[in-house]
């Protein structure tokens, strides 16, 4: 990037894509001038909202104030906080984590010098100034870049312009062992609720669920040290998920297709048995 400082304005108003955001945040970690400028421009951007104020419905206040009772405020930053590490097989040359471009990550707080407590594992790799990077352009025009951070013992795969896989197919990640065998990378089947929301009205097309709509919970589940997946969160009944809940992979019915066959999908269900159970 020729003049990275020039991104400060766009960054301050979130007018950057995820790749630019990660590079700029990497830059911010070592540029106090840009940090100060971003902070000052954010003061201005915060005031832009004054020109668009709209009173929300009263029910939202209740939802927010009851929501916070289920969320634990983060404790103040302490030095040397734990970083989640998973035991990798010693035979693997590099463990690769798929980065979901476009999924909202941890909020960058330029006011702290040591921001590692609030960065996701992906961000920590992407922002390691000593990380190595290898890029490849694929025949279909997509690019794939592996960013490898020996310090973090992790690597992140970032793809751009990767086309949607054909119907019924998914992308699968394979790793090469030192003996040059290829092994599939199995993601963990357990994780924690990273954030969640409820869907209270039938989503518009292309939603293909049953005509008769039942509200459901959905959210992002963090598979520790791996990825954050978007998923249904069944099994809460009349209760609500809480950020941090331990959940595990399950299969749930989704709909019935025209041939009368049941269509299923994946979901993550609370591991704890105290959540009120649903039929499935």
């Amino acid at each position: 990037m020729s003049d990275i400082h020039a991104l400060s304005g766009a960054y301050a108003v979130d007018a950057v894509d995820d790749i630019e955001r990660a590079s700029f945040e990497r830059h911010l970690a070592s540029c106090p001038t840009c940090r100060a400028e971003v902070a000052s421009l954010r003061e201005a951007s915060a005031l832009l909202a004054d020109a668009a104020t709209t009173t929300p419905p009263p029910a939202l206040r209740d939802a927010v104030l009851s929501g916070i009772t289920r969320v634990r405020p983060l404790p103040p930053v302490t030095v040397g906080g734990p970083v989640h590490r998973r035991k990798w097989f010693p035979a693997l040359v590099a463990a690769v984590v798929l980065a979901l471009v476009g999924v909202g990550g941890a909020v960058w707080q330029p006011w702290r010098d040591d921001a590692s407590q609030t960065l996701s594992a992906t961000d920590q790799v992407l922002q390691d100034p000593e990380a190595q990077q290898v890029s490849q352009t694929l025949p279909n025009g997509a690019t794939a870049t592996v960013v490898r951070s020996p310090k973090e013992h992790r690597a992140v795969l970032v793809t751009e312009d990767l086309p949607e896989p054909p119907a019924g197919k998914v992308y699968q990640l394979w790793l090469q062992t030192p003996s040059e065998d290829m092994v599939p990378f199995d993601l963990s089947t357990r994780g924690t609720v990273w954030t969640w929301t409820s869907q209270n009205f039938r989503p518009p097309a292309p939603y293909a669920g049953p005509e008769e709509f039942t509200p459901y919970h959905l959210g992002y589940v963090e598979l520790p040290g791996e990825v954050i997946v978007e998923t249904y969160l069944p099994g809460y009944g009349d209760g609500r998920p809480t950020i941090g809940d331990a959940v595990e992979l399950t299969i749930i019915p989704f709909s019935t297709n025209e041939a009368g066959e049941e269509v299923v999908t994946y979901a993550f269900r609370p591991v704890s048995s105290t959540a009120a159970g649903e039929a499935s």
Binding site: P56, L60, A63, V64, G67, I68, V71, R72, P73, L74, P75, P76, V77, V107, Q109, W111, R112, Q117, T118, T195, T197, I243
Partner: peptide, 14 residues
């Protein structure tokens, strides 16, 4: 809005 306030609540110590 709800997500923003929950995130604010969660990260207020920062």
């Amino acid at each position: 809005t709800q997500e923003a306030y929950l995130e604010t609540w969660r990260t207020a110590s920062r």
